[in-house]
Nucleic acid binder design. Sequence first.
DNA 1: CGCAAGTGCTTGCATTTTGCAATCAATGGA
DNA 2: TCCATTGATTGCAAAATGCAAGCACTTGCG
Lengths: 141, 141
Amino acid sequence: MTQTAFRSGCPINLGLEMFGDKWTLLIIRDMMFAGKRHFREFLASDEAISSNILSDRLAMLVGAGIVTRAGDPSHKLKAIYSLTEKGIDLLPIIAQISRWSRSYMPVDPVLAATGEARDKGGPGAIEAQMAELRRVHLGEG
Amino acid sequence: MTQTAFRSGCPINLGLEMFGDKWTLLIIRDMMFAGKRHFREFLASDEAISSNILSDRLAMLVGAGIVTRAGDPSHKLKAIYSLTEKGIDLLPIIAQISRWSRSYMPVDPVLAATGEARDKGGPGAIEAQMAELRRVHLGEG
DNA sequence: CGCAAGTGCTTGCATTTTGCAATCAATGGA
DNA sequence: TCCATTGATTGCAAAATGCAAGCACTTGCG
């Protein structure tokens, strides 16, 4: 079982097979907007992900090349999770989900603020945030 | 059980609670790109959704105001599903998922063509497609 | 009329995934 | 030594999914 077969080669379907669930993109969100990098930090989200699901999703994301896992030099038990370029490139999707929800769902105004600022910043705001993520997660140049 | 409680008021989370699964956006995709409007048409997708899941998702989408259901004048048993503005506004999300998958997943070139054309058409291409969906699904002007 | 094909589903049941609480071994700081 | 912290794992109940069949009804055709 090196590679599972996909239901179809449709781009939408392939994306959904990768992150089409209720948790995966929340982990990415926490890495992008909350600066979370450690297992226990992800566990502490508002949505209360369970540790077994988190463990499963992190392993999947690492296996898919969306996230990398490295040891923390300061603590041998500590793992640091970082976004890859493939992961950082999920930001436009997340930004669109945010935009849609802010139009049609009962969002918390406080939590919606960052998305509103991003929309107000125009197309350059997303690119700027991606550049910042590259700096933090892919190492400075 | 009129309204389930949400896990959090975060825009990303609320979006995922609505369509964060492996099937919902595929139904929307079929309405947007394949012109499907009938139950049996959705059943015939490449990904082979089962009828009970399809039934569940269509009811959810109607309940959420993303899709409407109407009887077909030509056939009393026939139901026509239409996108609402709320549903049509999912197109930018789907377009971004398509873009990401075409960059990082083994997409079928034939199925990727429409997404590539849309990207090549620039920002106006999405708006044009949304306008066309409004014409077909929300009634002509 | 009689009957097959087509309509949107529903029902049972096995399998898989999720949710939740408890637990674990290893580490580091005191 | 003592104990909180680390990234998980385990066991088990509940929910979701997948699959095959079936259902009530309508339409079209002879």
